[in-house]
Simulated assay, not measured.
Amino acid sequence: MRTVLVTGAGGGIGAAIAERFAAAGERLVLSDLRSAELSTVAGRLRDHHGTEVTELPGNLAGAQFAEELVPRAGTVDVLVNAAGIYPATPLLEMTAAVWDRVQDVNVRAAMLTTVAFGRSHVRAGSTGTVVNISSGAATRARPGASHYATSKAALEMVTKACAVELGAHGIRVNAVSPGFVTVDSSANPVTDDYAAAVSVNPLGRRGEPREIADAVFWLAGPEAAWITGAVLRVDGGSTAGAAGLPLHWPGETPVQQGEETDARA
């Protein structure tokens, strides 16, 4: 039985990840800023799976809480950094405080928990694995998300940098990058218009939290033992391209026209 620490476990993708590990019989340590929601998730996992769950609520925007989270959790075999915030802030309304809070929660906290995780395993001479939750925003900017997109791009580089330095100690660090996933989140609400606009992908549907959780579970397991520093895109193919666009040439293609000309010559 492994001990799995999941941040951002009070709802959405974080709660689904906790559920996936609970279903496999793992011991859980869960953290979230929202203590009431965290207790609801923990209670459900105890009732449904008989899971041993420790709750460590707190604010990952604070460096001290982030640095102390892993030591407080005890021996942790798997660390999942799922906590994240994505406020909508137009660029011309950006302030240093708003920018810094997004970077502190989305990037710095994951870096600090991973450092603490690495130190604990190096001291013990043991191995472990880290999975960070990124986003398609890491590669695509959008209005109102300059801070969020920047934070996820930085998180993917933090993932790679940590993988390089911790690999010699047998510690794997990877990331899962979800596309648009249907979640009911009071912390990160979105409008219906936004959801309809960003959920277009080659597979033609939104993702579900359990699908992200399955990817995290796999990356944290023995089947992925030779994978580190990777970013797994679980996004219905949206990274590959846009399937819903019309053909840009209205009729015969230039090649077809050229072939017909050649045939007549």
Rank of each mutant, 00 (worst) to 15 (best):
L60T: 10
A110M: 03
A110N: 05
H121W: 07
A82H: 04
V80N: 03
I85P: 00
A124H: 05
G25K: 04
T54D: 10
T40Q: 14
T95Q: 01
R119T: 11
P71C: 13
A15N: 09
Y86W: 06
G14C: 12
L112Y: 06
G118T: 07
I85G: 01
A124L: 03
A18I: 06
T54M: 06
A24E: 15
R72D: 13
G125P: 00
D47I: 11
M111C: 07
D47L: 11
A42L: 07
R46N: 07
A116D: 14
M111L: 15
E52A: 08
T113I: 15
G84Y: 04
T51M: 02
L30E: 03
S126A: 08
L38P: 07
R44A: 14
P87C: 08
A23T: 15
E37R: 11
G84F: 07
G43L: 11
A22K: 04
A96G: 08
H121D: 09
V102D: 03
L38M: 14
A18W: 03
A18L: 07
L33I: 14
T114F: 04
G58K: 10
A73F: 11
R72W: 15
R101G: 00
L79Q: 11
R44W: 10
Y86G: 00
R34E: 15
A36Q: 13
A96R: 10
E67N: 10
D77G: 07
I17K: 01
A97T: 12
R108K: 13
S120Y: 08
L28W: 04
T40P: 00
P57G: 14
A16T: 09
A109E: 01
F65H: 10
T95A: 06
F65K: 06
A83W: 02
T54R: 12
A73M: 08
T51C: 11
G50N: 09
A82Y: 03
T40M: 12
A23P: 14
T89P: 00
D100L: 00
S35I: 10
G50S: 09
D77Y: 06
E37C: 02
Q64R: 15
A16P: 07
V29T: 12
A83N: 03
A63I: 09
G125C: 03
E67R: 14
V115G: 01
H49S: 03
L91N: 04
R27K: 15
D32V: 13
E55M: 07
E19L: 01
V105M: 01
N106D: 11
D32K: 08
R44I: 08
L112H: 03
V102H: 01
L45K: 05
V98Y: 02
A42I: 03
G50I: 13
A15I: 12
L69Y: 09
I17W: 02
R44G: 15
A42D: 09
Q64S: 14
V107D: 03
G14K: 04
V80G: 05
R101C: 00
L30H: 04
H48W: 12
E68Y: 08
A16H: 01
N81L: 02
V78I: 14
T127Q: 05
A63E: 15
G128C: 00
H121E: 08
T54F: 01
G58P: 08
A16S: 14
A124R: 11
L30N: 02
M111H: 13
L69Q: 09
A66E: 06
G62Q: 12
T114R: 08
F117I: 01
P90G: 12
L28T: 07
V29F: 05
A66M: 09
A66G: 09
W99H: 00
G50L: 11
